[in-house]
């Protein structure tokens, strides 16, 4: 105690010369010394993100096979892209993967979360609901590559589970080379992605529902609202912020999808499952058309950045709403 009591006078005396200036100057003086702590992060960012991204933009304006000197060709790569059916196919498939990774899992996730929260939990107890939730979540703990290997095995045409089961129940006529046939490969890959994503949306939406005031549901029930009425008028409006964030983040993830394609189909057969990420990868490292691949990657980066900015703006607006 005695050591502490003398302390207060000392700081005030030390503080007084500083406070003679404006408080703003004091704040600036202290913040100047903090720049040095930003240095490692800033150097890393410049070396790993800024410079490579600039180089990638430059490559996209050149014709280069990866060896020798790049030849500057202006916007030729982009002009070629517009006429390339594989390019349009890849972005079209991105749309399909947004359906498979964002739209369907969100719709199913809201529905399943509502059933678990507003039907199973009150009737059979929260324990039943959380066991079911854990089962839906399980695919999420898998590394994506492992999920790919697992499904490749399930889809395998000769001895794979799916075809064996079809044979077993007498539907052998429905046997398919699921991943090897251009008609089914896209659906097969989408199925894997839906399987992977549902757990994420169910868990996020159930967490969202637990913050909803239960009195809302009780009042609706007393007023005679059925389950579907409660679903439309309470669950969906209450979950709107979560739905928006989940839709945007999973859409960005869908645009970037690479590992499942690499493991399951390598974009094939033909270009039936090609996506921008795999398209640029194969241009870089398989056909070594570096400039062309860089152009694809730049366009993808542009698209993702636009969506990310929308996301950030939405989040800051929401946060402001919270403070008010």
């Amino acid at each position: 105690m005695t050591a502490v009591t003398p302390a207060p006078p000392a700081p005030t005396s030390r503080k007084s010369p500083r406070t003679t200036g404006t408080p703003r100057r004091t704040a600036r003086e202290t913040s100047r010394g903090y720049w040095i702590y930003l240095l490692p992060g800033a150097v890393g960012f410049i070396a790993i993100v800024a410079i490579p991204f600039g180089m990638n933009l430059y490559y996209s304006l050149t014709s280069w096979r990866g060896v020798g000197t790049p030849k500057f060709v202006g916007l030729d790569n982009y002009i070629r892209l517009v006429a390339d059916p594989a390019f349009w196919a890849s972005f079209l498939h991105s749309g399909a993967f947004i359906v498979a990774m964002a739209v369907i899992p969100t719709a199913l996730g809201v529905f399943l979360a509502a059933v678990l929260f507003d039907y199973i939990a009150p009737k059979f107890g929260t324990r039943a609901a959380s066991i079911l939730r854990a089962m839906f979540y399980l695919p999420q703990i898998l590394p994506i590559v492992v999920a790919g290997v697992l499904w490749k095995w399930l889809y395998q045409p000769q001895y794979g589970i799916l075809n064996t089961v079809l044979d077993g129940v007498g539907l052998g006529g429905l046997r398919q080379n699921w991943l090897g046939d251009a008609d089914t490969s896209m659906l097969a890959v989408m199925n894997v992605l839906i399987w992977l994503q549902i757990g994420y949306t169910v868990v996020v939406f159930m967490a969202g529902l637990s913050r909803v005031d239960p009195a809302l549901y009780e009042a609706a029930e007393i007023d005679g609202a059925g389950w579907f009425q409660r679903f439309w008028s309470i669950t969906i409006p209450q979950l709107r912020p979560e739905i928006a964030v989940v839709l945007i983040t999973t859409s960005v993830a869908a645009l970037k999808v690479f590992a499942p394609i690499y493991v399951l189909t390598r974009g094939g057969p033909g270009t039936s499952t090609i996506v921008p990420a795999y398209f640029s990868y194969s241009n870089f490292f398989t056909t070594t058309q570096v400039g062309y691949g860089a152009a694809v990657a730049s366009l993808l980066a542009l698209l993702v950045t636009i969506i990310a900015i929308v996301l950030l703006r939405y989040q800051t607006r929401n946060a402001e709403g919270f403070e008010k």
């Binding site: 202290t30 930003l38 960012f45 490579p52 991204f53 990638n56 990420a277 990657a297 980066a301 993702v304």
Partner: peptide, 30 residues
């Protein structure tokens, strides 16, 4: 803590590193 000037922008630029597709960095990094 340092409350650097323009910290909102610094953060936004940092976030680019997180959202940018790695395909747009991979060949230069290679």
């Amino acid at each position: 803590i340092g409350r650097l000037k323009g910290r909102v922008w610094i953060l936004a630029v940092f976030m680019l590193a997180f959202t940018i597709p790695q395909e747009a960095l991979v060949y230069p990094l290679f």
